[in-house]
Amino acid sequence: MLPGFPHAEPLAGLAGGILIGLAAAVMLLGSGRIAGVSGIFARATGVASSSLPRVAAWAFVLGLPVGALVIMALNGPLTPSFMSLPWIAVAGLVVGVGTRLGSGCTSGHGVCGVSRLSPRSLVATLTFMATGIATVAIVNALN
């Protein structure tokens, strides 16, 4: 599909990205809000307060697996490859702490903020891309 990258799926990636962009656009133009998953999850669970009604926060959070189910119904089962559970647990903790301190994740900063050219989001996105790339490089080197 993509010369030099036999495992890449650029068309599916682009289509998925367009859906994510539409999702964020619906949130912005419909409700006037940023579709930032970590923030909305924090709002839903009561960790953070915001003007977003809690029922709306839960509607968004529960919509995520529903959307994945729709794709599985249309495209057939997904065959992901997850890391081991202890590894995931450590990562989850770090992601939870990091997204609260950094006020966002790949969606709020990476999609909504970068497309708005927000300086904070540009800095955050460059930072988490850099540490993510470094982490994978170190882990792969150790293995």
Binding site: G16, G63, V70, I71
Partner: peptide, 13 residues
Amino acid sequence: VSGVLFGAGLALG
């Protein structure tokens, strides 16, 4: 609607 579109995009991508 936003959440469902978002989840679908994540899975598709």
